[in-house]
Computed example of a mutant assay.
Amino acid sequence: MAWRNLLLPRPITKNGWDKTAQQGGDNVQWMSMYEVDSFVLSDMWKRLQDVLSYASNETAWYPYDVAVNYLKSHDHTRIHPDSAPHEVEFTLLLYLSEGFAPGDYGETNWVLAREDDGVHSYIGPGGDMFESIGAVAPKFGRLAVFRNNIEHSAHPPSLQYLGGRFTFAVKVSRNKRLNLVKRTYERMEQLHNMSPTMQNYNRQLLMGLHDDTDKSKLSTEDLEKVFKKVVNQVQNDRADEHYNLIQQITRNI
């Protein structure tokens, strides 16, 4: 109850609707993002570190995505993994809504892609078939911990459930170096234009060429400097976009 009271009174960010047919992102429309580097200083993170240590026998985990998600009955979620097949990561999912009955849905489902049967592959994008391998009901206060390269989705609550499904999601990398790799290439997706050098660096990060200090010439400190540079560039792009929008509005008045 204390965690819910702390987490929920925050402004919600509205995400754009994903119009593509392919499975990919979760397509959750409403969420509230938390600043990762501030979250790691909280007592809440220390509690979750204990859970991860128990689940994995490792202690160097570092969060790269921290958010409260809100799911309504009319939302259309997507099947997706949170990480690439080669990445060793976990997602921790804390359910924060009370009163869910078995018929109210809202569960988290894990699935496996079905082999091509010679029919559904001809449907085109979005025609993939999946088989459910497990699910967790959204009981208030329950914490689900899972390897997040397994494809999964959130089932929207039923129409008879008044309100929505609140969950607190924390996605973690195996250590701070891998965390910087992940956060950098994800943040680079928001850049409007990347130089050839940055494009090459982005490919290297995606291929895992800088994951290991024994194979990369870049130190963890070097990776952190590049990450901060990318963050600043994204912020500048957003500022330019906002300025251009204001200019366009004022010209039309």
Rank of each mutant, 00 (worst) to 15 (best):
V136F: 14
L7A: 05
D117G: 00
R47E: 13
G163F: 06
D18T: 10
Y54I: 15
Q190P: 08
R174C: 04
A169V: 13
A239G: 12
T59M: 02
F100N: 03
F130N: 00
K182P: 00
D222C: 12
H210Q: 06
R4N: 02
E186R: 11
A144Q: 04
A84V: 03
Q22L: 07
Y64V: 11
I123K: 01
L112H: 13
S42A: 01
R187S: 03
H192S: 07
D82L: 06
D117L: 03
R251C: 11
D222V: 14
D104T: 04
R147G: 12
H76A: 08
V68G: 01
D212R: 11
W17Y: 15
D50K: 04
T184L: 11
E58M: 14
L6A: 10
G106C: 12
G103F: 05
G106M: 01
L143A: 02
F100T: 05
M194F: 09
M31K: 10
L96F: 05
Q49A: 05
V51D: 02
L93Q: 00
I133N: 00
S53P: 08
R142S: 06
R114P: 01
D43H: 07
L8C: 04
H152D: 04
V234D: 05
Y62C: 01
S121A: 10
S132Y: 04
S121K: 08
M198W: 11
H120M: 02
H242T: 12
E87N: 01
I150G: 07
E98Y: 08
R142L: 14
Y70E: 00
R187C: 02
M31N: 12
R177S: 05
F168G: 07
R4D: 00
M194G: 02
A55R: 11
G163H: 03
R47V: 05
E151I: 02
A84I: 06
D65C: 13
Q248Y: 15
E151R: 09
R174Y: 01
L143P: 00
W110I: 12
T59Y: 03
K14N: 12
D214F: 08
V68D: 09
G141E: 04
L205Y: 11
K46Y: 00
T220G: 14
Y243I: 15
K229D: 07
S153W: 15
S73G: 06
V40L: 08
K182N: 06
H80V: 07
K228A: 00
W61N: 09
P11H: 10
P85M: 05
R187G: 00
N200T: 14
W30S: 09
G127I: 08
P157K: 13
S219P: 08
E224Q: 06
D82W: 01
P85V: 01
Y243C: 13
L178Y: 03
Y95L: 07
D43C: 09
Q199F: 02
G99V: 07
I253E: 11
Y64I: 06
N149I: 08
R183C: 10
T77R: 09
L218W: 06
V68E: 01
Q235D: 12
P63E: 14
G134F: 01
S132I: 13
A21N: 14
D214L: 04
Y95A: 14
M188G: 00
Q235F: 07
V136E: 13
H120R: 05
E107M: 09
F140I: 04
N148C: 02
G25F: 07
Y70W: 06
